[in-house]
Amino acid sequence: MAHHAASAHNGHHAEMHEHHVMDVAVYWKVFLALMFFLILTVAAAIFDLQVIIQKATGLNIRGLNIMIMLTIAVIKATLVVMYFMHVKDGTRLTWIWAAAGFVWLLLMFAMIMSDYIARGEVEQAPPGWEQIH
């Protein structure tokens, strides 16, 4: 039928895109990885790496802990999205929409925080301002 040729344009990948049934072992591995990262997060919070580094080297890296914990959280979320939510085997369209929310959220954080970071920087009047007024 002519429609097969036509529908290739259309992005229905009915024939190409079968639902993959993932192996049980994959789910278990992902779960164990999630457990590992959970314990790692808590460990990072309890044994404050920032303090340890400061004691050892005198170097104070501000916000190191929260960065470690957030990195771990991102890894955990990625694992869930990729394997539990099957994005790994999803079509390109699924990838785009799965990414869109996170990307747009980061954009919102960045734009709003750029205001907060720059607040109060330029409240000084230019020289000679008093004479004009």
């Binding site: 750029s114 205001d115 607040r119 109060g120 330029v122």
Partner: peptide, 21 residues
């Protein structure tokens, strides 16, 4: 259109630099 909302805040205490952007 998502990157311009700050022009509603020019006079309400937003940072001047953010306003310029």
């Amino acid at each position: 259109g998502f990157l311009v909302w700050g022009h509603h805040l020019f006079t309400t205490g937003q940072s001047m630099y953010a306003g310029m952007v």
